[in-house]
Structure formats: structure tokens, C-alpha cells
Amino acid sequence: MAIPSTMRWRYFKEGLFFALVRLSALVITVSLGGLLLYIFLNGFRTVNWAFLTLPPTDSMTKGGIMPAILGTFYLTLGAIAVALPLGIMSAIYLTEYAKQGPIVRIIRIGVNCLAGVPSIVFGLFGLGLFVVFLQFGSCILSGALTLGILILPTIIGASEEALKGVPQTFREASLALGVSKWQTIYRIVLPNALPGILTGSILGIGRAAGETAPIMFTAAAFYTAKLPSSILDEVMALPFHIYVLATAGTHIEETRPIQYGTVLVLVGLVLGVDLIAIFIRSFIRKRKRW
């Protein structure tokens, strides 16, 4: 049967559109896969047990990256310790307590703006406030606080979504039993929102672990032989280590394998953290019944 020309034109347009969509998906997948593959191929020879467990030696041209891994670990943990309570509490205020109105809207806009601020600005802010003004110096504390503020919008956003995701009927049911508002939030809303909050927060962790700019003035050391003994010590950190090796040293070419190895560790770390988040989320979705 002959297909009318208008139909054919429609089929053509449809085909074209689908082709474009497929192409975009392909470009993204290929570039991401290529990037990961490139990093892996260049880095995997460097990464071994010693690399992960030994400090750098010979002006960082040899040895491992253990202090940087540890530093990133401390910084991220600190950032979470700062941002999680603050973020959850802000989200509770915004969704449960605050009267929905202009003030809340302004706060929300503020939070969103915070999310859009370039990370170097956070770094300078941390330098100004924590390092200089409060005289913490360049240390884990300053860096963790700065990273904490950086990931605050992510955590507030995730927490707000998670809190809003708890059905209103749960709140009503609890309140109607003569349970106070705070107890309702504490006993019913938070437990049901927690998985969602955690998922969002883990994504925040990934971001905190990978950032260079916020820590380079506030926490990261070019090189420290000793491991930190308190939160007021400087630390090495993975992203900053990569930055240093790739731009600031005198042995840039010689340290290429170490650079790639560090990149691989960092990317693996961030991806691993994201994977955990994805797993938790799918697990919750399966369990959810309301």
C-alpha cells in the first residue's frame, strides 16, 4: 500500500528526531566510557597495595599517596559531620515548621544560589573566615567547614525532598493521636525520610571528596610527611595532590604515572560512593509500600 507523502514526511521527522536522541546518548556514554577507560589504562599499573599504603618519597616522585587518601577521608568525614546535622535541621525547618511564604522562598533561593557558587569562591570564603579571621589556620577543621558549606545545599535539597516524600497522612495520623509535632517529626517523619536523606548526602560526599578549590587555601598541604594528629593539622588531599603533581612540581613528566594512579583512586572513590547511594536508593524503593 502506498504511504501518503505527508505520512512519509512525518516518519522521516520522527526518524530524524530519534537518531538525534540516540546520538546524544551515544556521545555521552562514549565520552564517559572513554574517559574512564583512559584513566584506567594509564593508572592501573601504578595502583597497588604499596601505592595505597605508603607516603610519597623522593620529592613525591616515588612512593604512595596514603596521606592524601587519609586527608581526603578526614576532610570528607568532617564536611559530613558539619553539613549533615545543619542540613537536616534546615530542611526540617523549611518543610515542617516555617510558614510557607516570602521568607521561606527567599531562604530557598539563597540555598539554590549557594549551590551555584563556584567552588573557588568557597575556598576564598573559607580562607577569609576560618583560616584568617577565626585563626584556625590551614587545617582539617577549616577545610571540613568549607567543604561542609559547599555541600550544604545538596544535603538541604535532598533532605527537603525526602521529608516532603513522607506522606502527609503519616503526620496527620500521628498528630491525631495526640503526639506533639516534634515527636511526630522525630518518631515518624525522620525515620521514614532518613534513607532519602542519606542517599542525597552520599552524593554530597562524592562532591566533597573531589573538590580541589575549596581546600587548597583552607586545609591542603603540598606535602606533609607526618599524618595529622589533630583537626588543627594540615593534611594532604587527593584532588590537591593531583593538582600539585600536574602543575606545580619540577618533575611533572616523571610523576605522570603517579598522577594517573591518584586520579584513578579518586575517580574510583567517587564512583564507589555514588554506587552505594544508587544501591541504597533502589533498596528503599523496593521496600516502600505507601
Binding site: 495520623a173 491525631a176 495526640g178
Partner: peptide, 12 residues
């Protein structure tokens, strides 16, 4: 609300 109980439209 402790003295006056409530049951809602949808089981919750």
C-alpha cells in the same frame, strides 16, 4: 487530640 481520636479517609 488524645481525648478525641480520629480515623481518616484513606487507611494510614
Amino acid at each position: 487530640r488524645r481525648r478525641i481520636g480520629m480515623v481518616f479517609q484513606k487507611p494510614n
